[in-house]
């Protein structure tokens, strides 16, 4: 059984990368302040939510992949690791790491930022749930595949899968061009 699991691991990781993500990421933002020598062009990376950081054991755990495919990975860090402040539990981050002996060491940690199109801003859970609770006149649009919408969606949301946006937007979106539209999908990682 052990060998079996080992064989499946790379596949599981590949599968997890195929699952439905939300944000496009931009990672170049904070690199200017870092010494150039720290930057590795094709360093292996883990992208996901930081689970925890142990200063005593000098390890960071990060959840990679989504849903059933999610796996918690562990990397060590040392004095040379940059961007440790971004390894805060619950935050999305990108960790570049390198192998030293049997261990993986984080070299550079960056926050995972979503890039929003011009003129579009982010809305957080609290603000959105208040709008929903007060029955505000808004339209919530679920950009995930229709099957995901069918199973569970935000109250009152309509379904326009991202790939159908060009064809279906006209018939579904409201006539009032100044109405608040809120788009969402399956989360940032």
């Amino acid at each position: 059984m052990k060998t079996n699991l080992k064989k499946l691991l790379p596949l599981a990781i590949m599968l997890s990368m195929l699952t439905w993500g939300c944000a496009q990421t931009q990672t170049g933002q904070d690199t200017a302040s870092k010494p150039a020598t720290e930057m590795k062009q094709q360093a292996p990376t883990y992208t996901g939510k930081i689970i925890g950081k142990s200063n005593k054991a000098k390890t960071i755990s990060i959840e990679v992949g989504k849903g059933d495919q999610a796996k918690t990975m562990m990397v060590k860090f040392d004095d040379k690791t940059t961007g440790l402040e971004f390894a805060a539990p619950g935050e999305a981050a990108i960790i570049n790491w390198e192998e030293r002996g049997d261990d993986k060491f984080a070299t550079v940690i960056k926050p995972k930022l979503a890039s929003l199109p011009e003129g579009v801003s982010e809305i957080k859970t609290d603000e959105l749930s208040n709008l929903v609770k007060s029955s505000a006149d808004i339209m919530i649009i679920d950009s995930r595949p229709a099957s995901r919408y069918a199973q569970a969606h935000l109250p009152g949301a309509v379904s326009i899968p991202a790939e159908d946006m060009k064809t279906k937007a006209a018939e579904t979106l409201p006539k009032e061009k100044d109405k608040l539209l809120v788009f969402y999908c399956g989360g940032p990682t």
Binding site: P117, E118, A169, G186, P188
Partner: peptide, 25 residues
């Protein structure tokens, strides 16, 4: 994916467009 959809809505003239990045989870 939703930021892209929001961008398209913005381009087609909607003036008040937001993205709930954290999403359903």
């Amino acid at each position: 994916m939703s930021p892209k959809a929001a961008g398209l809505a913005k381009k087609s003239g909607y003036t008040n467009v937001k993205v709930y990045l954290e999403g359903e989870p």
